[in-house]
Write a protein that binds this DNA or RNA. Structure first.
Lengths: 205, 205
DNA sequence: ACCTGAACACCGTTCAAGT
DNA sequence: ACCTGAACACCGTTCAAGT
């Protein structure tokens, strides 16, 4: 018992255990109905123990959302690396990765983007994490412009366009608004590629 | 007292009064923290009275969300009518109207799209109301194709593209994710027009 | 330093009872 | 038919107390 085992239950890194417990409950309970007391129970501590590690429930939820933003940033970075020097394909794959994440973790998406958390509470998380994801997108655009593949001009508005398109599709799919159009995972991913293509080539004749 | 006044407080149309009370509380309390007991108090009835008119809290929230979908559908219809036979301008104005609604009612957007309600609970509302909004969009596309302004081809994917773009931008703005790029209402509306333009003309050279 | 248990002010929901 | 009040099983949060 010199450290090879977590000494007992309540010890080690309760903060991390609480985050882990909350993430495990998220898919079944839903972002809107996650209870701090149940998280504590799953972590094996009393319902007041979390207050030594988080100021309140919102602080715990923010910590969870942060892991979601990290996941999102990482998926996008992987996509960019795998399609080196093909900005067109990068944009299509980025949209697909975004939709993929929503399919896999709908309740995490609601937590990150559904207004569960106050905007101010997420401020720091956003500035650091979701800005990174956006910067990745902007780099794809700027690179594509340098290669002469994309139109020159307002790179920021191009990046916001791509982000909005992918984000909107992901949210509409997650909320079930497009279930008449795409129900299976494969249909959803196909739709994300088609939409990215539409943004690339435009719909004007 | 032959009908010119609502007989007393608890009478007339409590169902409508409850919906009205809930809508009035929505902006300040937030979709995530609206309490049925407080709605009842504002409506001037006991906290159990709502159960004569709604099966549960979710049913009340669904009724509120439905008014949101009606508002959305109506704004889009107005836009279409005001820009008759100019599908390009219709698409730009539709995006702007969508963003406008989000600016005016952020908590309503969270209620409609933020995962507060179960998908099944919204099923009927969606089939009837948000399908209408989408049908309006599709009509813009089909009309534009008939006029030779838009590319021929998959009109449905064009409509979903426009919807996703507007929806994503609105949600990102509402959640504060784009506050470094657009903070004032005018900047947000400008951004919506720019993005619609990007979708129209494409970003590929 | 870290955790517990009692306590408080809230919830949503059910049900017998009142008019 | 419609509404009320008590009751139940939950919440988030605070605080004195334990180790």
């Amino acid at each position: 018992m010199t450290g090879s085992e977590k000494n007992t239950y309540h010890h080690g890194d309760l903060r991390a255990s609480l985050i882990q417990a909350a993430i495990s409950l998220l898919p079944t309970k839903g972002a809107a109905h996650l209870s701090l007391r149940e998280v504590a129970k799953v972590a094996g501590v009393s319902h007041t123990a979390p207050y030594r590690h988080f100021e309140d429930k919102a602080a715990l939820l923010t910590a969870i959302a942060q892991t979601g933003f990290e996941q999102l940033t990482q998926s996008l970075l992987e996509v960019v690396k795998k399609q080196q020097n093909d900005p067109e394909q990068q944009l299509i794959s980025a949209a697909e990765a975004y939709v993929d994440l929503g399919i896999a973790n709908p309740e995490m998406m609601y937590l990150m983007f559904g207004g569960v958390l106050e905007i101010d509470s997420l401020s720091k998380t956003f500035s650091e994490k979701s800005a990174n994801a956006f910067t990745g997108l902007e780099q794809i655009i700027i690179n594509g412009q340098a290669l002469g593949i994309f139109k020159s001009g307002d790179s920021q508005s191009f990046a916001v366009s791509a982000w909005s398109l992918a984000h909107g599709l992901m949210m509409l799919l997650t909320a079930g608004q497009l279930r008449d159009i795409a129900s299976s995972s494969e249909q959803k991913k196909q739709l994300s590629r088609t939409l990215a293509q539409n943004l690339l080539t435009g719909i004007l004749k």
